[in-house]
């Protein structure tokens, strides 16, 4: 089995005495796509935000390639190779598609403190290569502000890829997209991750997307892990069916 990229141990978060996340262990390997699912309030987003540096855990450890990165800020995590997409997608609206990716590449190269020289002269080719990978080459010159939501999601993925991540955190990557687009986007993310050996952890509501593209599924319920395993096993798990999937599974597997 390939190397463990992300390792989470005993993660705990309380909000005013309510245990939102109560002791979660999980790991993601290079090239593996792991889905974090569960009913609303199960603690997915809390768990996700602790891993991504938006929230500070009350207890537990987060390790990236064996190094302790618990409670690091998103920017420090980025420096160590954590890419991130958000549930409510944003790109840099006042820039073109290519400039968005170029800026991320400039950040990676540590060039952001330069006050002279055009930003756009650096990494044009590299940016185009990444845009080609997410299928946005044709839109390189368009301003991000006028993009459709599905395209914006691709740009966000491209920005994350520009950081050459080892771990990609995707919070509800397909929220707000049309059904056809959803599977397409996740197929794209999963194939890129496989090819480059990127570990992917994502939360998702759409069971079609989850069962089609997750190598492994972790089901959360009331802050704890209810079940974990490959899609087939999760589909068959009666506890999961009882607590959560029910209707979702029926329509999802169809």
């Amino acid at each position: 089995m390939s190397a463990k990229v992300l390792e989470v141990e005993g993660l705990v978060k309380r909000f005013r005495g309510v245990n939102a996340v109560r002791g979660i262990d999980l790991s993601v390997h290079a090239g593996e796509a792991v889905a974090l699912i569960g009913p609303n309030g199960a603690g997915k987003t809390t768990c996700f935000n602790m891993i991504g540096g938006q929230l500070k855990p009350d207890a537990g450890r987060v390790r990236l390639e064996g190094q302790d990165v618990t409670a690091m800020t998103p920017r420090l995590l980025w420096r160590r190779g954590v890419g991130r997409t958000f549930q409510i997608t944003t790109a840099f609206a006042s820039m073109t598609v290519r400039e968005n990716v170029q800026l991320a590449l400039n950040a990676k190269a540590g060039r952001l403190n330069r006050v002279f020289g055009r930003m756009t002269v650096a990494f044009g080719k590299e940016a185009d290569a990444i845009l080609a990978r997410v299928g946005m080459s044709a839109d390189a010159e368009r301003p991000c502000a006028i993009l459709a939501y599905g395209d914006l999601k691709r740009i966000e993925l491209a920005i994350a890829l520009a950081g050459a991540p080892k771990l990609l955190l995707m919070d509800e990557p397909t929220a707000g997209m049309a059904p056809g687009e959803r599977v397409q986007l996740m197929a794209l993310a999963a194939s890129l991750a496989k090819r480059d050996g990127i570990a992917v952890l994502f939360t998702e509501h759409d069971m079609d997307v989850v069962f089609a593209h997750a190598d492994r599924i972790i089901v959360l319920d009331r802050g704890s892990i209810l079940a974990e395993g490959p899609p087939d096993k999760i589909k068959a798990d009666s506890a999961v069916r009882a607590v959560y999937l029910g209707a979702g599974l029926a329509s999802g597997v169809g």
Binding site: T73, F86, T90, F92, M95
Partner: peptide
């Protein structure tokens, strides 16, 4: 434009 996105992009 997007402070959160910016932080997560270094």
């Amino acid at each position: 434009d997007a402070p959160r996105r910016a932080e997560a992009s270094g």
